[in-house]
């Protein structure tokens, strides 16, 4: 088993000590759901498993998971565990779309303005990057 390697990678890459960790755990699970790594109605690892994997406090892991339960993304089944709710992916994608403008478009536009890149030019660049990614992905 390469459990230790995975774990070292996990905590090194994903946990950032300058932001609340429970948010990062919640985001990580959300990401897995959006990407389809965690399917709807699939069982989510226990909080202790999360804690061991990311080498974090179990209460913190539980807080992250519970946040998703409160949001209706996950649901608990007594004595069995935690599962991804049906419709969770659509809800998450919707939320991320709402945040997209603030999180990505605005800083991009700001930087573009600073460098004197016109909005049309920017749109063209985005279109180009799209084809580049598709090509990159295909090769």
């Amino acid at each position: 088993m390469t459990g230790h390697q995975v774990r070292a990678l996990g905590s090194a890459v994903l946990i950032d000590d300058s932001r609340p960790i429970f948010l990062q755990i919640a985001e990580r699970i959300e990401g897995d759901i959006i990407e389809g790594t965690l399917q709807e109605e699939a069982q989510v690892p226990s909080t202790n498993a999360f804690a061991s994997f990311y080498r974090i406090n179990p209460a913190t892991a539980a807080k992250g998971v519970n946040r998703l339960v409160d949001d209706g993304i996950l649901y608990k089944q007594r004595g069995i565990g935690m599962f991804v709710a049906t419709g969770a992916r659509a809800a998450l994608v919707q939320r991320r779309r709402e945040q997209f403008f603030d999180q990505y478009v605005q800083p991009l536009a700001r930087e573009a303005r600073k460098l004197g890149i016109e909005p049309l030019e920017l749109a063209e660049m985005i279109r180009q990057s799209e084809t580049a990614t598709v090509h990159g992905g295909a090769s």
Partner: peptide, 27 residues
């Protein structure tokens, strides 16, 4: 520590001057 604490919760006081190393374990 994380593993055993997860299974047997108890009060743990971890004294340290290496903060970065233990930070993620602390509540």
């Amino acid at each position: 520590l994380v593993e055993d604490y997860g299974r047997y919760p108890r009060t743990i006081v971890l004294s340290s001057h290496l903060i970065d190393e233990v930070a993620n374990l602390l509540e």
